[in-house]
């Protein structure tokens, strides 16, 4: 059984302590909370006090508590909606890539930790989080829950996830949209390799279902700068028979150009669908990238691309 600290590094969590994962669009939830709900609730049953953080509306401040304790607390009510967040983790073969500069950590390793971290943050702000792992289709679906102990279930699923199989993001997205009945935040952690048109259609499907979609696109540095010099046989991680023996020096420029095109088109597609695309490289500490992104998101700025 995996330890929680294997996935959640206290240092990273400390760094992200002041951040919240907020939905930018109106999402549906069972409870009223941080996020704007399309349902107008009458129940004003008090649920709990929560410490004020920067950005909270001042009108929710409990001035009585302030008067007693001289501290800012927010009153939270049951009917305030909470966020239902689904993390979609790509566990296809291509995520098994271990680069030459990442000390044996695969892209899936990186993605799992990112997923765990996000889940923890979401649960911490009393929203509910679910996890779906997939390759050509969904493998394991862990429905969103709001209990703090849910993180344990999530980590167990992450632990059991091994990379393998092909990717068909478009098909997986189409399959999942009907399963996510309520509008919410969909976080896709994937390298997004595959037919770009099919992927964009899948993403558009999510948007059509009024989900707020964020894509964390995981890259290995090798995939971005193609550093190979000697004759190399590239064995496909997804299909065993697929092998190409080439002189990488001759192909490097073309590859990089091809990569640039792909990323350009993908970024444009995401932009068109108002999806946040957060590219991350496995040699970069995810907490750093995540905190940068979350801060930016809170300010309502555009998604960054590093």
């Amino acid at each position: 059984m995996a330890k929680v600290t294997d996935y959640l590094d206290p240092k990273d969590l400390a760094r992200l302590a002041n951040h919240q994962v907020l939905a930018k669009r109106v999402v549906e939830g069972f409870c009223s909370g941080l996020h704007r709900s399309p349902h107008k609730g009458f129940s004003v049953e008090f649920k709990q006090h929560r410490q004020y953080v920067h950005g909270d509306e001042i009108r929710h401040l409990d001035w009585k508590v302030y008067g007693k304790s001289d501290r800012f607390y927010i009153r939270e009510y049951e009917e305030e909606t909470n966020l239902r967040c689904n993390i979609l983790l790509d566990a296809s073969g291509s995520m098994a890539y271990e680069g030459t500069r990442t000390e044996g950590r695969s892209k899936l390793h990186y993605a799992s930790r990112l997923a765990a971290c996000l889940s923890y943050m979401i649960l911490r702000q009393t929203d509910s989080v679910g996890l779906i792992t997939f390759d050509v289709k969904s493998r394991k679906i862990l429905p969103p829950r709001g209990q703090a102990a849910h993180v344990r279930n999530l980590i167990d699923v992450l632990e059991d996830t091994t990379p393998g199989g092909e990717t068909d993001l478009g098909a997986v997205f189409h399959e999942l949209v009907p399963k996510l009945k309520r509008r919410g935040l969909v976080i896709i952690i994937s390298d997004c390799f595959g037919d770009l048109d099919s992927v964009m259609k899948g993403l558009a499907h999510f948007r059509h279902a009024k989900h707020d979609v964020v894509i964390f696109q995981i890259w290995d540095p090798d995939e971005l700068d193609f550093p190979f010099r000697q004759w190399t046989r590239f064995d496909c991680l997804e299909i065993d028979e697929k092998q190409h023996t080439v002189d990488p020096v001759h192909l490097r420029e073309a590859y990089l150009e091809n990569l640039e095109n792909y990323r350009e088109k993908f970024t444009q597609g995401c932009h068109r669908n108002r999806i946040d695309l957060v590219p991350m490289t496995t040699d970069q500490p995810y907490a750093e990238a995540l905190s940068y992104y979350l801060a930016l998101r809170k300010r309502g700025g555009p998604p960054s691309r590093k």
């Binding site: 291509s94 892209k107 390799f193 590239f234 064995d235």
Partner: peptide
């Protein structure tokens, strides 16, 4: 060299 490779479509 043998290099397992993910970004095969590129």
């Amino acid at each position: 060299n043998i290099q397992p490779w993910g970004a095969m479509h590129l």
